[in-house]
Amino acid sequence: MTPDLTNESGGVVVTKMNDLMNWARLSSLWPLSFGIACCAIEMMGALVSTYDLDRFGVFPRPSARQADVIIIAGTVTFKMAERIKRLYEQMPEPKYVISMGSCSNCGGPYWQHGYHVVKGVDRVIPVDVYVQGCPPRPEALIGAILELQKKIEQEQLIG
């Protein structure tokens, strides 16, 4: 932007610091690029051109330290649960969790006889938004991002 443009008409926006920060945060929700099972395929579908989650500022990051939100897309086995917990702990605050699909919501088809499956990722890390479906369609994941944005909008980080 040229200085002329930024000074155009010399407008001033007055807002609350809290609102400005929330607006900035909810407009660039960076998820960890992390998928576990078939739901991850739908997550990838939501991220690329047809559904293009990038228009909501959702842009996957390869490092937990750069991520705002972790989308648990798939079956959480006990072996993976430890890794998920560790990734979650590596994310900087404030951080959010979207549980995508029946498996990570409650164990899904493995709710019985699933000796190896954690019956809900919320037994390991706190979940902000649950997305139902097996797997959920990309629209449903976009819906979850919008829900998360509403939640962030209401938060009070300062004051």
Partner: peptide, 14 residues
């Protein structure tokens, strides 16, 4: 004859 354990590393199984 496998019996699912109650907990694995503090996480409840069933």
């Amino acid at each position: 004859d496998y019996k699912t354990a109650e907990y694995y590393k503090g996480i409840k199984i069933d």
